[in-house]
Amino acid sequence: MTAVPDRPKRPDSSGDPATARPVLTAPELARVVDRMAHELLEKTGGGADVVLLGIPTRGASLARRLAARITAFEGVGIPIGSLDITLYRDDLRLKSPRALEPTALPPGGIDGKLVVLVDDVLFSGRTVRAALDALADLGRPRAVQLAVLVDRGHRELPIRADYVGKNIPTSLRESVHVQLTEHDGQDAVLLGSAEAGREGR
């Protein structure tokens, strides 16, 4: 009777990965995450007061991976959480309502912390804008930074990332698929052609 949004999928997995070409392989992706972890430690003075908040679905997984690598490198535990931004999106009127993803804050909360938002792909910047609004309703961090695995350009808002895994210049007709083992059975970043009517990232 009714179209129910697929719960585990986000529109950022659109396009047909089968026809897409890889721009990051699994080992490359792992190296990129390692580098981001190092950069993060460096820029935040060893990760003190840092909270990683991943934007579901893949951003949350990336946040977990970054935290795990930081622990592996420095032996410090970084609090992690997830932040669903669906209710703050500015494109709600353009699509069917989506099922909500979990938001989970670490026990210490975010007040006074350096919150690093983690997402898979930075594109228009609207997701980050929504995340900043959502964050403001949850508390008052000391500062907010942004970490993304892929920056594909085409910003529509004055937003830039503090940590970028890989810059991939794209055409608007292309789409970027980040695949992670937890969700897709393999690690890869694929570049394909965006399907009409679906959201490429």
């Binding site: 009777m1 009714t2 179209a3 129910v4 949004p5 209710l87 709600l92 009127r93 353009l94 699509k95 069917s96 309502p97 989506r98």
Partner: peptide, 14 residues
């Protein structure tokens, strides 16, 4: 309210 009004198309209902 969110599922009926939150988007261009309601997600539930008759």
């Amino acid at each position: 309210l969110y599922l009926l009004l939150g988007g261009s198309e309601p997600a539930i209902g008759a």
